[in-house]
Write a protein that binds this DNA or RNA. Structure first.
Lengths: 293, 293
DNA sequence: GTTCCGCATGAATCGATAG
DNA sequence: ACTATCGATTCATGCGGAA
């Protein structure tokens, strides 16, 4: 299969990945389905089989990723019978056996974590963003995520107020250069490996597993314009939308038909491109043309 | 050996632990020496042998801990040859085999992380605080660590009281006063599992140190007055001082003679005055801060 | 045009209940 | 005894309507 840019598949990611050529994507950002506590699950993945389920996928991801590319895995283990599940840390060990380098673990601090009160724990306010690479000398564009110093920056990080959000959205839409302009005269510093983003709620209009700021940060950090960003569990399409907005190409898979349609709808709505359907060798693929407004 | 309260040992913790009776301490809080990359280390523990070195200690800790007690392990894996070391997550798996329950993983977000710049990673801004227990029904005193509400409620409360003062002057019996009381009663909430503390000044490269706020938070959360708090890697004595300040008893071990003397000196210097507390909204609260400053 | 308040909601977890 | 379902708990956030 030749890799067509900017398309999404309504299919199991493993089957699509196997048809993809090796070393073809620059960055993988995804948040896979979380494990399900129920013993017998027909759509979810059980806790017991999680590692076994994910291993063939991570093996293919290793194959399709370019040598200097990165794989960012957003995940968090469930509480199982009063304990934190061990399947995530077991997965790390298994992926290293496959050849992945566990380069870093970024922490996503969710300021608005799910409420609740229990006798043995507090609300869970963070998730892992595991950073895997194929080589030590992977691409990392640190200057693209520098943050300004001073109160303005820290307050923006801790609390995305309404004005900040407007600024943030315009920043994404107009590209990164404009943001730099806004910060001229200010000192900028490199961030640390802790990310402060609020989760998205349903009332924002579209449900998503992670806020757009999360893939945005990693896409800026680990890819450049024109690169290809892959999300094998696309969900409602957040990764693809952000990638396209940042002038990267996207490839995505989503098994669930409802989410696939939602992603397609969201992408067509948000991305300033005209999507055309085309038949190639009996298969329907997507190609896009630049929409010169 | 009979357990003497409020004493510290200048000895290898394992040898002392073995002499201690079982089920005698209520809480263990410690930050063990970090693994050392160098092959032959004088006092450090090599990366390869870290799990093997720690297992007999954690086995004894399991024995001396009371059934409803907790073990809080502050640790973070080093970067080894460009990758995060796996010995911490391997240790979690091994400790579960010993009988420990991996109940939770708290996250210490270091607000002022150690500076530096590397081509493949950012500054490390967080450490793990692994929470192990012997039973599901362990002791947890959640009310002791409540924090002020976030911006949402505080700004709302501020505005409510402002408009309400006006209404109160005009309408004495409006029934609105009670509503305010409900809001005021809600000015503290339960925290999540992310702790925001600044690091302490760099100690002279020996055993890992944490700010006093860290043991303070866990001592308040997992023990009550009169309980016994153990730190098998006491360092300069932070855990013991905080324990005593909070009217708990302490037991500590420190192998390094210099640090042992320092700890003893620090503890003896300690005058049982009030621990540093801050006033927030007229209420005394913990030094933990809900928001990133 | 702002600011402010009411309300719904979210990758949750525990304990009790029912089969 | 083991498993599935359900109600209670909790708080930061965004949206929409009101002041």
């Amino acid at each position: 299969m030749k890799l067509e840019k900017d398309q999404i598949f309504n299919a199991d990611c493993l089957s699509v990945l196997k048809k993809m050529p090796k070393n073809c994507v620059n960055l993988i950002v995804t948040s896979p389905p979380y494990a399900d506590n129920r013993k017998s699950t027909y759509e979810g993945i059980s806790v017991e089989s999680y590692v076994k389920w994910f291993k063939p996928i991570s093996k293919e991801l290793l194959r399709v990723l370019k040598p200097k590319g990165s794989f960012v895995l957003n995940i968090k283990e469930r509480v199982i019978d009063g304990e934190r599940g061990t399947y995530v840390i077991e997965l790390i060990l298994e992926m290293r056996k496959q050849g992945w380098l566990w380069t870093e673990e970024y922490m996503w601090h969710k300021k608005n974590s799910y409420p609740g009160k229990w006798p043995n724990r507090f609300r869970d306010g963070w998730e892992r963003c595991l950073h895997f690479t194929k080589e030590k000398g992977f691409n990392m564009y640190q200057d693209e995520v520098k943050v300004p110093t001073g109160d303005w920056a820290s307050s923006r990080l801790k609390n995305l107020s309404k004005t900040d959000r407007i600024r943030d959205e315009s920043k994404v839409k107009s590209g990164f250069g404009k943001k730099i302009e806004n910060w001229i005269g200010r000192d900028t510093v490199y961030p640390d490996n802790v990310l402060h983003f609020a989760t998205v709620c349903e009332n924002k209009g579209h449900s998503a597993t992670f806020p757009s700021e999360l893939p945005e940060w990693f896409i800026k950090l680990f890819s450049k314009k024109g690169d290809i960003v892959l999300d094998p569990f696309l969900g409602s399409g957040t990764t693809a939308i952000v990638a396209k907005t940042l002038e990267r190409h996207y490839v995505g898979m989503e098994l669930n038909k409802t989410y696939y349609k939602l992603a397609k709808e969201n992408i067509s709505k948000f991305v300033p491109t005209k999507i055309k359907k085309r038949k190639v060798k009996g298969k329907e693929i997507l190609s896009n043309e630049r929409n010169i407004k």
